[in-house]
Amino acid sequence: MAGFAIIMPVLPKLIVELTGENLANAALWGGALMTSFAVMQFLFAPLIGNLSDRFGRRPILLLSLAGFGINYGLMALAPTLGWLFAGRLVAGVFGATFSTANALIADISPPEKRAANFGLLGAAFGVGFIAGPVLGGLLGEYGTRAPFVAASVLALLNLCFGYFTLPETLAIKKRRKFDWKRANPMGAFRHLAERPVVLRLAVVMFIFGIAHQVYPSVWAFYTIEKFGWSAFDIGLSLGAVGVVFGLSQAVVTRWAIPRFGEIKSAAVGLAALSLAYLAYGLITAGWQMYVVILASFVTAVAGPAINGIMSNRTSEDEQGELQGALASVAAVGAIVGPALFTGLFGVFSKKDAAIYFPGAPFIGAAIVVALALLVFLSAAKMIKDDHKIAE
């Protein structure tokens, strides 16, 4: 997570340098870059998840880190926008291993603790989101390529650390035969369709994933346009988001889920997130961004809670496949989200726009999360009905 977070503060400026476009048009290119990454995640996440069910989690994760290290180094040399696109496509392949990391957590966690431990993994990503933008903002003062070099070095250092410390968590007796019919997006979706509750929750994750793309897609563009922020200002604000997100995942998730259950925790998290996006879109001063960030403390509980419900309804030898399917679902959201939000930003942030309103993408995200909440409540009713039948 830190790798991409490092380059986020300088991405708008780099795109402007490579294209000569204004900020509104550069945002559209930024959305296309995000979409290219997501397309590769969609295609490769089920394959990676199934490979981890066959060969174990450790080799897949280490290979991913090696690929990231090399890729970011090559992206630092990008002379054209096409080169940058190629780099994001390759990164999308290696980035599909988030599903493997989730499967690793499922391997080592009893069912009643999986949601909370998914939260810890989210907290680790939050730490990357803290350090990455701040470091990227600082390095951005020395040029738009410096953050890419730093991302490459960090990935390779992480590879060395993982090689000596990361254990294998999937016992050989629990591994299953690799099947190409299941190791593709359509096969993954068929797997979800076999479990109605899991399928409904996957739809929630899809919608939720669309809304989440508002952060990487337009945060930098929005704050530059509305508040005139520098790369350092952007990095600092995203670092604050990471602090709150990480603490929420590490603290709130482990406190709320055991006390209130996964269903109530997820519902509250989704409702709070919708309100937070609404606030981001309506604020009028840069300092108010930090007020909303602090008020968003409870929002990060939703994802781990929903993931925990689905994981507990899946067998041990299919955890990688489940997480791969969910990664593909999220990737579809990541394809739709950047196009939606950068499109909204491009339309409403032009100086000659009929309605000048740069916050439009965040209002859109608030509406999308509200829809996710409605679908989740319908899934929660299915779960309660299942429990009544079982009793």
Rank of each mutant, 00 (worst) to 15 (best):
R259W: 09
A106Y: 05
W180G: 11
A116D: 08
G140H: 10
R254Q: 12
G49T: 12
L199Y: 12
A91S: 14
L201N: 13
A295P: 06
V134M: 15
L238K: 08
L238D: 00
S52F: 06
G87I: 04
V329F: 07
A32N: 12
T284G: 06
P46G: 07
V93R: 02
T342M: 03
A193E: 15
D352V: 05
V198H: 12
R313C: 01
M289A: 10
W287D: 02
Y163Q: 10
F94L: 05
V292C: 00
P110F: 08
L247D: 09
I108L: 06
D107N: 14
N102S: 14
S378Y: 13
L154K: 07
I293G: 01
A45K: 09
P338N: 13
A365K: 06
M382F: 13
L270M: 13
E318P: 02
V203I: 14
A38S: 15
A86M: 11
S217N: 11
A370G: 03
G308F: 01
G126E: 10
G132M: 08
N71M: 07
N25V: 01
L170E: 12
Q323C: 11
S152D: 05
A240K: 13
V332Y: 06
L43Y: 04
N22G: 13
D385C: 07
S230M: 11
R200A: 15
L273A: 07
D317V: 09
R313F: 11
A188V: 02
G87E: 04
A380Q: 04
A116W: 05
M34L: 13
R114M: 07
V90M: 12
L270F: 10
A106P: 09
G132A: 08
L18T: 08
M8H: 10
P46E: 05
T169A: 14
N71V: 02
V375E: 08
Q41W: 04
E262N: 05
R254T: 14
L120V: 12
L11G: 03
G20R: 14
K174D: 15
Y356P: 00
S109K: 08
N71R: 03
L159V: 07
P167R: 06
E141F: 01
A27M: 00
M382S: 14
G20W: 14
S52D: 02
A211L: 02
L138F: 15
E21C: 00
A193Q: 15
F178S: 08
A32E: 04
